[in-house]
Design a protein around this nucleic acid. Structure first.
Lengths: 107, 107
DNA sequence: TAATCATATGATTTGCAATTCATATGAGCG
DNA sequence: CGCTCATATGAATTGCAAATCATATGATTA
């Protein structure tokens, strides 16, 4: 059972699917169908992952008719990733970054 | 396969065993035997986990005779956890923190 | 209000990674 | 050197959580 806040936090961000979602949503809000299509995810896969991200307040939801638009709460993600970048830059130059998160570079 | 730096980073910190090690080492360096005993870990379990943490430069190793002393590189961990604390404080007040990391409170 | 579209939810399966178990390496010491 | 202590390493196992599959809910429109 996950009972520690840190574990909860890190576990949520330790999966490629959720990182891809974060990366995509950084470009703007999307509803579930749009997101599923862009990432080639099953609809339920997208929903499950989005729910986890929303539960931990990494993304926000807004209902528009039948659709639900998910958007990124950048205030928490951006500073974290900036710290990691610094760490990686310092120690892990040799590691591959096959799917770099583009908005990392903007700042 | 883990290929993305962010995933590597978060996965490493997403396990209770590694968080317990980080917590313990925050109080000072220890060798493998001491750490295993304090955390009730099998020796090999401690070694495997310490290796992973060392590979990612979260901890440092120093040989002293047969023993190897592991110590925390606080420069990376502390700022990260501070950000998470702020996030948790804001959104997850209700979540339990059964094994709080003490040096979080000092700063 | 039936039909359809958009999304959520629950149960089952499955894949992977942490632990364990067994063994290897390597340092100090008599 | 042979022995023991400290740690590392590799292979096998196992537990868990993400993906999948099937179904439910809920909103819109005709």
């Amino acid at each position: 059972m996950i009972c520690n806040s840190y574990e909860r936090f890190f576990k949520t961000l330790a999966e490629p699917a959720k990182l891809e979602i974060i990366n995509l949503l950084s470009k703007g809000p999307l509803n579930v169908s749009q997101l599923s299509k862009k990432l080639n995810f099953e609809q339920s896969r997208a929903s499950h992952n989005l729910k986890a991200l929303a539960d931990r307040h990494f993304v926000l939801v807004e209902r528009k008719g039948k659709e639900r638009y998910y958007s990124l709460d950048k205030t928490i993600i951006a500073p974290i990733l900036r710290l990691i970048d610094a760490h990686v830059e310092k120690y892990e130059k040799h590691y591959c970054k096959c799917k770099g998160i583009p908005w990392r570079k903007k700042e």
